[in-house]
């Protein structure tokens, strides 16, 4: 398998006024093409920071990282990845359609093509008919779907998702998880997905990376043997529960209770 992301002995230390914060320490990770990799861990374990390093939104203090064989900055300039934040981050003065096509405008894609892509990707996330609505007229789940469609609109090979469903209720989250899985299956994109929900990580991923805080590091990497065309029912199966248990053990082992 061809690696999309290769990370070796990566560390990141934030210099704060009183003491340095070791956000990441000695992280080794390899993400292959077509992988769905979840980064899971308690808050403060550096999973979001790691994702931001891949996206060139943070600079590592030490170690190696290559995205599609080049530096994260080069990868960002080549617009290799689409990033989905915890919040939808829709611009309130743009309609749903114009939010979706904003990256296309930036990339200088023609108006006709933009409209075609908007139609296609809104249909993909089941939001046909909402083109002219403003973000505040949509529910939280719909807004997040718009932000996913926006990340897909310029057809990047790599999707970086930072707890995209964290603020949603359980039912909406289950539904969107299933949709995301279908999307991944169909498009064969590589996904790096940050979460702190064990069922979500196990349900979605082909690989689960368990992280622990202070300093942020990887404590376990689990290759999931679950089939790609899984449905929500798979959460009742012994295989699923076994992986979930291993994730839980990893989290417990990495977690220090002295704080």
């Amino acid at each position: 398998m061809e690696p999309v992301i290769e990370i070796g002995n990566l560390s990141l230390t934030f210099q704060t006024r009183d003491s340095p914060v070791y956000a990441l320490s000695g992280v080794d990770l390899r993400v292959d093409r077509g992988d769905f990799v979840s980064l899971i861990g308690p808050s403060g374990c550096g999973k979001t920071t790691l994702l931001r390093v891949i996206a060139d939104l943070e600079q590592p203090t030490d170690g190696r990282i290559a995205v599609e064989g080049v530096s994260p900055e080069e990868a960002r300039l080549r617009r290799i990845y689409g990033y989905v934040f915890q919040a939808p981050v829709l611009y309130p003065w743009r309609t749903v359609q114009r939010n979706l096509t904003m990256p296309l405008e930036i990339m200088g894609i023609s108006r006709a093509e933009r409209q075609e892509r908007a139609r296609h990707y809104l249909e993909l996330v089941n939001l046909t008919g909402f083109e002219r609505k403003f973000p505040w007229q949509l529910s939280g789940g719909m807004q997040q779907r718009v932000s996913i469609a926006r990340a897909l609109s310029f057809e990047p090979d790599l999707l970086l998702m930072d707890e995209p469903f964290g603020a949603l209720d359980e039912i909406t989250r289950d539904h969107l998880n299933e949709q995301l899985l279908r999307l991944w299956e169909r498009t064969g994109k590589t996904v790096v997905f940050v979460t702190h929900s064990i069922p979500e990580a196990v349900f979605l991923s082909s690989r689960i990376v368990v992280m622990s805080p202070r300093p942020g590091r990887i404590v376990d990497v689990i290759d999931s043997g679950l089939p790609r065309d899984r449905t929500l029912d798979i959460r009742e199966t012994p295989e699923f529960l076994e992986i979930a248990l291993r994730v839980r053990r990893g989290l417990r082992a990495g977690h220090s209770y002295d704080d």
Binding site: A55, D56, L57, R76, L77, R79, Y81, G82, Y83, F85, A87, V89, Y91, M102, P103, E105, I106, M107, F154
Partner: peptide, 20 residues
Amino acid sequence: LQLDLMETYSASKAQTFWML
């Protein structure tokens, strides 16, 4: 986050100004 979003698209300073 709104500024980070522009960064992920490698938007130019002028684009960030006029669009955000």
